[in-house]
Computed example of a mutant assay.
Amino acid sequence: MTVRIVVVLACMVVMLRLSEAAVYRIGDSAGWTTIANVDYKLWASTKTFHIGDTVLFQYNPQFHNVMRVTHAMYRSCNNSKPISTFTTGNDSITLTNHGHHFFFCGVPGHCQAGQKLDLNVIHPTSSTPLSDPPISSDSSSPSSPPSTTTIPAAGVPGPSPSHAASISHVAAAIVALLVSCFVANFAY
């Protein structure tokens, strides 16, 4: 009986954490581009990223890509050996651990022109203020579903339509179901 209580409580904690995950569209309405002169460093500084959050890179795949790189590669815009490369134009990446995550466009000249991003996922015990709410849906987003990838941090110590709302409702329903099962088991 005690094991059942622990399992139910653990499931509730996991579901509550999932309901807090956010989806951020890189560059907001401008997306991942060199044309709109987006300051990605400034953009990232206005957000607080947490483990479980998802970042969405939306771009024209004929002109751009997304490369996940090391800190040294990021600083020098070296695209010779990226950790991973994304090319769909609608890349969804879930952040799975704290620390810095480094990205840039591998098309020659784009990183040097500022199409690079350093995301700092805060440590779970950090007391950093909450960020802006996740993005909302707009008509300019591509119609194809995002390709989803989960990646770890780059190993450097501590830097759309939103699916967060639907996850929140599902998590709340699961928690309610678990609570009702928990209460039913103890009613007898």
Rank of each mutant, 00 (worst) to 15 (best):
L9A: 04
L9H: 01
L9D: 00
L9P: 00
L9G: 01
A10V: 02
A10S: 09
A10W: 01
A10P: 03
A10Y: 01
C11G: 08
C11T: 03
C11H: 07
C11E: 09
C11P: 02
C11Q: 14
C11L: 15
M12C: 07
M12R: 00
M12A: 04
M12H: 01
V13G: 01
V13P: 00
V13W: 00
V14H: 00
V14E: 00
V14G: 00
V14W: 00
V14M: 00
M15W: 06
M15H: 03
L16N: 02
L16M: 08
L16T: 02
L16D: 02
L16V: 03
R17C: 11
R17N: 09
R17Y: 03
R17K: 07
R17F: 05
R17E: 15
R17T: 06
L18M: 12
L18N: 06
L18W: 04
L18K: 04
L18V: 05
L18A: 09
S19T: 03
S19W: 03
S19Y: 04
S19P: 02
S19M: 08
E20C: 09
E20D: 09
E20M: 15
E20T: 04
E20Q: 11
A21H: 05
A21G: 05
A21E: 10
A21S: 07
A21K: 06
A21Y: 03
A22S: 09
A22Q: 11
A22G: 07
V23S: 10
V23Y: 04
V23E: 15
V23W: 05
V23G: 07
Y24I: 12
Y24L: 15
Y24S: 13
Y24K: 09
R25M: 13
R25Q: 13
R25N: 09
R25H: 07
I26N: 08
G27I: 05
G27A: 13
G27D: 15
G27E: 12
G27P: 14
D28N: 12
D28A: 11
D28C: 06
S29D: 15
S29Q: 14
S29C: 10
S29H: 12
S29E: 15
A30D: 15
A30M: 15
G31W: 13
G31H: 10
G31S: 11
G31D: 13
G31Y: 08
W32N: 14
W32M: 15
W32C: 14
W32F: 12
W32D: 14
T33C: 08
T33L: 10
T33A: 03
T33V: 11
T34K: 13
T34D: 15
T34W: 06
T34Y: 05
I35R: 15
I35E: 14
A36P: 08
A36H: 09
A36K: 13
N37T: 05
N37G: 13
N37L: 10
V38E: 10
V38Q: 12
V38N: 11
D39E: 02
D39W: 04
D39M: 07
D39Y: 04
D39P: 15
D39T: 02
Y40M: 10
Y40I: 02
Y40T: 02
Y40L: 07
